[in-house]
């Protein structure tokens, strides 16, 4: 498999893989903060949220240059998937800013 094709295939799932990792991280931080009573719990969560959104923005706004028919089509689908992942990241984790952390 050529390098460009491999990257196109990976970029198709890149955004949502980051989203999944972020999901686990935020859910884990939420649980740990409650278990150990962190005083800066919400600040930590909002910071993690910010980092996650920033990382998700990279593949969403920085499309790959592609060569070849297959990877060109893949790249378009990948761009949309990565933008969907960014949207999902912004919306799903927005509650860290206002919902109650441990009740």
């Amino acid at each position: 498999m050529r390098q460009g094709d491999k990257i196109a295939l990976i970029s198709l799932v890149a955004g949502f893989t980051v989203w999944s990792v972020g999901f686990v991280a935020l859910y884990g931080l939420q649980a740990l903060g409650c278990a150990y009573g962190w005083p800066t719990h919400r600040a930590v969560l909002i910071l993690a949220y910010g980092i996650l959104v920033a990382v998700l923005a990279v593949p969403a706004f920085w499309p790959l240059r592609s060569d070849g028919e297959a990877s060109a089509t893949l790249s378009v689908a990948a761009l949309w998937a990565n933008r969907a992942a960014l949207g999902a990241g912004v919306l799903v984790f927005l509650p860290v800013t206002f919902t109650s952390t441990c009740v």
Binding site: T17, W19, S20, L45, A77, A78, A81, V96, C102
Partner: peptide, 28 residues
């Protein structure tokens, strides 16, 4: 293609909606 990739991943982020009543904090 983009939609089913999104669906595939998002569907792994829903499981606790079967457990809304078990006493998990509201943020989660």
């Amino acid at each position: 293609i983009a939609a089913i990739v999104a669906l595939g991943f998002l569907s792994f982020g829903l499981w606790v909606h079967h457990m809304f009543m078990v006493g998990i904090p509201h943020m989660a």
